[in-house]
Design a protein around this nucleic acid. Structure first.
Lengths: 138, 138
DNA sequence: AATATTATGCAACAACGTTGCATTTAATGT
DNA sequence: ACATTAAATGCAACGTTGTTGCATAATATT
């Protein structure tokens, strides 16, 4: 609870109940969340627009990052210290096609790629789809 | 022209002017296209819905594949022989943040990744964002 | 407690995508 | 070349997703 306030303050954001609730949703569910997921999780507590704006500010301030997906955009917590100035991510995202959950594999880095002459890379996004350990087990 | 018919027939599709036009749009513009791009390129010739359905069939039949993007879905031609039965892609997508175009780097394969125990990968999608050769030059 | 600044809710709108149904078109056999 | 069958299109309507402007409410600061 107090930790939420700290996180928000650390990113120069005012503490509001909506931001606390969105942030704790990300912390509790450990997988990536879409706007719709959050709307579902938070019920009628907040306006749709407020959630959109909360996601936008969290993105800008470096609290969450985008997770690409062939069926829509999701968001996940930034584990390492991201800030308004710089977002840095080079981990892999895994989406399970059985349970539908997408997770950050924080420990796995995206391997280097030798691009052809002239290409200047700035950011990388690798999504692997398949079956996750929980769903393989069943 | 005749080639378009061949391609469509090869994927067990009837030849219609809409399908020919959509297909040639993909062949002419060499970058990935969104539904909106196609609507723009084809003008008022076809109904919005028809373009959506054309994209859907092309996807299913293995003529085009999805290209993920943090600002929406795009589609690009499948270079290698994809079919209704199997789609196989392991090339890299590069999106230029200056000109906004996304291209398939057909010759670059996604490097192998050692996933933790229990993860069963099925498909890979790597998007690199940065500056493309044309925009670097300027 | 008063103030300045920021966040929220509401309304309205725009973009994106889907479904059902009647009509038109393409392929096939005669 | 024509009739038949099956599939594709256009239209209307709808649902979802995301954005913007503005008045109100809440937060941080003095």
């Amino acid at each position: 609870m107090e930790q939420l306030r700290e996180t928000l303050k650390g990113h120069h954001l005012r503490t509001t109940t909506c931001r606390e609730d969105v942030l704790s949703a990300f912390i509790n569910k450990k997988n990536a969340l879409s706007h719709g997921d959050l709307e579902g999780a938070l019920g009628e507590s907040y306006d749709r627009v407020t959630i959109y704006r909360t996601l936008k500010t969290f993105l800008e301030k470096g609290i969450i990052h985008k997770v690409l997906d062939d069926e829509g955009l999701r968001y996940a917590l930034c584990s390492h210290q991201c800030s308004e100035e710089k977002h840095q991510h080079d981990h892999i995202h895994f989406k399970c096609s059985i349970c539908g959950k997408t997770n950050c594999l924080e420990n796995l880095h995206i391997p280097n790629v030798a691009l052809p002459q002239g290409y200047q890379p700035a950011s990388f996004n690798l999504l692997i789809q398949g079956t996750c350990p929980e769903c393989v087990a069943e």
